[in-house]
């Protein structure tokens, strides 16, 4: 609720916000309060979207009422391989352009596929530059129709291998690699940092190419999983936290991904929030006037600034400092000065 998160199904079923009817809790002043309603709407301004995803900055939430969705009768998944990232990206756009909203549309790049396969033996295609998992759910008739349409689209954009889950066990197997992407990465490296940003779907290949270049620039490896249907990327940067140089390079790598996302028309956080980690990147995405408006919204809910102070919105001073420190084209200003 605090991060308005959404997993592999949110393209079809919406984000947390779309499935929350009401939250109850307390204002910073200690008064009981409810946002939203069990009814379709509540009187007055619709404050629920401000609360959902607000990272505990606006109120203390103690109870959430969610909408439940009947479980689909059936789900089937297509696993499609692509010889290059560009055609995988084109496949994502083409599925959507043909009027199909899959129940899940996930992409993994080659290093991620290799790591996942090594860990769970999901039967992934190790020759592919990227694989897509494309799911349909609903009534058996609906699923049959949609799987047929999706398979045709994926073939049409040049999938090199297509496999459709025969039964639930095989569907789970297809997903097992994707759902174990994080622990699989953990086996490859002492530490990893999971990034989270969103870009327009059509920039997906461009983004992955940019990350390839960054791997050389920061001398760190990065594996990629994408909620491709939503344009939400989760690059996992592999590093060793015991090496201060690697930690620092990892942080710069992460910030570079976030700022590239903004440049490509996206945002610095899709669902993991800003917290303190992404405060600097918020300076890049929002103007001083917009950040000041965020502070004003915060004060409307929490005039004394008691809740999670210092998170989410960077101060003017911090952004000014970051502006001076800003890494431009990989070059720190005054590179000869020692930094700790």
């Amino acid at each position: 609720m605090a991060e308005n998160s959404g997993g592999v199904h949110c393209l079809k079923y919406g984000l947390t916000l779309h499935n929350v009817l009401r939250v109850r809790g307390f204002t910073a002043g200690g008064e009981a309060v409810a946002f939203g309603a069990e009814a379709p709407d509540a009187p007055g301004l619709d404050l629920l979207p401000l609360i959902v995803g607000s990272e505990g900055m606006l109120a203390i939430v103690t109870e959430v009422t969610v909408k439940l969705t009947p479980k689909p009768q059936l789900a089937r998944c297509i696993m499609a391989s692509f010889a290059d990232i560009e055609s995988a990206g084109a496949a994502v756009a083409e599925v959507i352009a043909r009027g199909i909203i899959p129940a899940g549309l996930e992409l993994m790049d080659r290093p991620m596929v290799a790591a996942a396969e090594d860990y769970v033996k999901a039967g992934y295609d190790l020759q592919a530059a990227a694989i897509l998992l494309c799911e349909s759910d609903g009534t058996p008739e609906e699923v049959a129709e949609e799987i047929g349409r999706m398979t045709a689209v994926l073939r049409g954009v040049g999938a090199t291998r297509i496999e459709v889950s025969r039964d639930e066990a095989q569907r789970q197997k297809f997903w097992s690699g994707r759902k174990n992407a994080f622990p699989a990465s953990g086996r490859m490296s002492p530490d990893y940092m999971c990034m989270d940003s969103t870009i327009p779907r059509k920039r997906l290949a461009e983004m992955l190419r940019a990350i390839e270049v960054m791997q050389d620039k920061y001398a760190l490896r990065c594996v990629n999983v994408f909620h491709a249907g939503d344009g939400n990327l989760h690059p996992l940067i592999l590093f060793d936290a015991n090496d201060p140089g690697e930690l620092r390079r990892c942080e710069l790598f992460g910030a570079d991904i976030l700022e590239t996302s903004v440049r490509l028309g996206g945002t610095v956080s899709g669902e993991h929030g800003v917290g303190v980690e992404k405060l600097n990147s918020m300076c890049v995405q929002f103007s001083p006037a917009e950040r000041e408006q965020f502070f004003a919204v915060k004060r409307a809910f929490d005039p004394a600034g008691l809740l999670n102070p210092g998170k989410v919105i960077p101060s003017l001073q911090r952004c000014a400092e970051y502006g001076k420190m800003h890494v431009h084209r990989g070059m720190l200003p005054f590179p000869n000065l020692p930094r700790y």
Binding site: N4, P49, T267, S269, G270, G273
Partner: peptide, 26 residues
């Protein structure tokens, strides 16, 4: 009289408070 931009053109976005959606029904 300040021109401000919130949210964006992407489906998932939790950078800052969701001021754009607050405008619906305002």
């Amino acid at each position: 009289g300040e021109l401000l931009c919130f949210g964006g053109q992407v489906m998932k976005n939790v950078a800052g408070y969701d001021v754009a959606r607050l405008l619906a029904g305002s």
